[in-house]
Design a protein around this nucleic acid. Structure first.
Length: 409
DNA sequence: TCGCTACCTG
DNA sequence: CAGGTAGCGA
């Protein structure tokens, strides 16, 4: 779907902003299927050759850089987790190929953006590239970080203020290495699906992520194992062994294992998972958990739901309800994004790079109020940036512009 | 048909 | 947030 070619997100976002600045209201952003269309058969020949040459050169350069960085990374000291995301080994070029790869990229960035998740990131070397290729980001990053009691050291976020360094290392700083073991994330981020890649059941074509070879399917078994492990460990704080078959995930899992840290208890509280009881229906706690989960995956697969709500006896009804919840979450979320984007445009923002979301802005408040009302989780103070482009839906009623929020790099 | 989604409505 | 509708793919 050229529509979602991540390599063009930024451009398209900018174009959109320009468009919206100038255009009359009814003018809808066009699908850019026109990209790459040749002007004519004649010019195609010469240009084609030149293009091919250029591409070759570019690819060579890119590949060299990738190799260099990868070598550098792996030359670094302790690298407990060589490969968490196999796809991430791919040269950045791949990221821009289609709608499936951006997800890997995204997953990686996600990790990097999580200050309190210390997950050795095999790809942090790519951080710099990601920074520069930020337009490849197609996925909103998690907005929530678990409330941290032990390490907060009073540097509580103030509007406009900035985080505790350790809480929100920049992607680059995270490249330094590992995570303090004291930090753990309530959700196994890398285990989550990515919004655009795993629509439940049949992608209806409204969304780009229709590939079945997505990370989810690629790593489902492994993820399942890890996930279960993690979930269990949530209540078996001693647990630290990984699935024997997936030792590569150990570092990852370790970072997710429950500790004595009080703050982690928050998640346990949120998680209705009680180890033994299987509930018939969904409780308010389940809703709470679902909301939090939403920030990690906006399109959870049914398998994910089953895993995350392992204390719920799933049936068609429960599944539907959960799916409906996520649908409602998305609705609210996108409405807020759109509202914010439009407001920004009205405020004179002319480019995506000018957009930022601070703690005291309406968007933040709305989202926090909706998804984190009780402030169970501390939301990253790092300003995040309204990022990407539009997603035109099939709706006959309106072409809604969808925006996503991402952390500012 | 079934399952999932966006969208609309209350 | 739930109910409902319509569209879409399997």
């Amino acid at each position: 779907m050229s529509d979602l070619d991540p390599g063009h997100f930024l451009d398209r976002a900018r174009a959109l902003i320009r468009e919206q600045n100038m255009m009359a209201e009814g003018d809808k952003p066009k699908r850019d299927g026109s990209r790459g269309k040749s002007q004519g058969p004649t010019s195609m020949h010469a240009e084609g050759k030149q293009l091919a040459e250029t591409l070759k050169q570019e690819l060579n350069t890119a590949m060299s850089q990738v190799v260099d960085t990868v070598v550098k990374v792996f030359a670094k000291p302790p690298r407990p987790v060589p490969q968490v995301f196999p796809p991430l080994q791919m040269p950045p070029d791949r990221f821009a190929v289609n709608g499936e790869n951006p997800n890997f990229h995204t997953a990686n960035q996600r990790l990097q953006c999580f200050g309190d998740v210390i997950i050795p990131n095999p790809l942090d070397t790519f951080a710099s590239m990601q920074v520069h290729n930020s337009n490849d980001q197609t996925e909103a990053l998690p907005l929530v970080v678990r409330k941290n009691s032990s390490d907060q050291t009073g540097s509580l976020p103030t509007p406009g203020g900035h985080h505790h360094h350790s809480l929100h290392p920049s992607p680059l700083s995270s490249a330094m290495g590992f995570s303090p073991p004291s930090f753990r994330h309530p959700f196994p981020l890398p285990l989550m699906g990515y919004p655009f890649q795993s629509p439940l059941g049949g992608p209806t074509g409204h969304y780009p992520g229709k590939d079945r070879s997505s990370p989810e399917s690629l790593d489902l078994s492994r993820e399942t194992t890890s996930l279960r492990t993690k979930m269990s460990s949530n209540h078996l704080s001693h647990h630290r062994s990984m699935s024997p078959t997936h030792p590569g995930n150990e570092g990852l899992s370790l970072s997710l294992i429950k500790s004595e840290c009080g703050d982690l208890q928050d998640m346990s509280d949120i998680s209705p998972y009680s180890g033994s009881t299987i509930q018939e229906g969904l409780s308010p706690n389940h809703l709470k958990k679902a909301k939090l989960m939403f920030f990690y995956t906006r399109y959870p697969s049914s398998n994910m739901l089953k895993m995350f709500f392992s204390d719920v006896k799933f049936n068609r009804c429960i599944t539907s309800q959960l799916i409906k919840w996520f649908s409602n979450f998305r609705e609210f979320y996108y409405i807020q994004m759109e509202k914010f984007a439009r407001q920004s445009i009205n405020d004179g923002v002319t480019g995506v790079e000018e957009l930022s979301v601070s703690r005291d802005c309406e968007l933040f408040r709305a989202l926090n109020m909706h998804y984190n009302k009780a402030n169970d989780f501390e939301v990253s103070l790092r300003p995040f940036r309204l990022f990407h482009t539009t997603k035109q839906l099939h709706s006959p009623y309106q072409a809604t512009l969808y925006y996503e929020v991402r952390f500012k790099q």
